[in-house]
């Protein structure tokens, strides 16, 4: 701009950012001094410098319109499981409990469990004998068939229940509302 200035305006404009945030003074103190000298004598560049210094404050003070009321409701609708899904998840507890009670009653502790295990082994051996043609088809007690059906039903309901719980909990979370909701 003026002949006695060691730096041209174009060069100062390029350096203004690093000069304003102090980096130029750290990396090249001589050039920083030259910029300072230029600014003292150049009104245009001084204005640009003021603009540069005030810019971060103006950016931080920027305002935006308030978020619409529908924003939170929309998000919660997308992430929160529906009440129907919740009800379904909890009502499944009832058949599970009934089936589990029946199975436990039938097994009646360790003794029942061992008797069921030995019964299964005997039935399998009889079946193998029937298959090889050396024996008759074993007659399986009705209660055992009932137990088998109860176990199959419990497994199916529990698997369905699990799938609902997984759907209710995106990202591995167990999405839940506080009590009373």
């Amino acid at each position: 701009m003026t002949e006695h200035q060691p730096l041209a305006c174009a060069r100062v404009r390029v350096l203004l950012e690093s000069y304003a945030d102090g980096e130029l003074a750290r990396t090249d103190p001589r050039e920083a001094t030259a910029v300072r000298a230029h600014l003292a004598g150049c009104a245009d560049c001084r204005r640009q410098h003021e603009q540069t210094v005030s810019l971060p404050f103006r950016l931080r003070a920027l305002s935006s319109p308030p978020p619409p009321d529908s924003l939170i409701a929309g998000v919660m609708r997308l992430v929160a499981p529906s009440r129907v899904a919740y009800r379904r998840a909890w009502t499944l507890i009832f058949p599970e409990a009934v089936l589990a009670t029946f199975i436990l009653w039938y097994l009646s502790g360790l003794e029942g469990l061992t008797s069921v295990a030995s019964g299964i082994v005997t039935d399998l051996l009889d079946l193998a004998g029937w298959g090889s043609g050396s024996g008759r088809l074993p007659s399986i007690p009705r209660a055992d068939v009932l137990l088998l059906l109860a176990l199959i039903a419990l497994t199916a309901i529990a698997a369905y229940h699990l799938s609902i719980l997984v759907r209710l909990a995106p990202g591995g979370l167990s999405g839940r509302r506080a009590a009373g909701d």
Binding site: L62, I72, D181
Partner: peptide
């Protein structure tokens, strides 16, 4: 909210919504 409390999550986004919406708007 990280523990899965939806009420806490709702309150969390209520607190963040101004800045997030403003950021998106800008």
């Amino acid at each position: 909210a990280t523990g899965g409390d939806l009420d806490a999550f709702e309150e969390l986004i209520r607190r963040l919504q101004s800045r997030v919406y403003g950021f998106a708007y800008q």
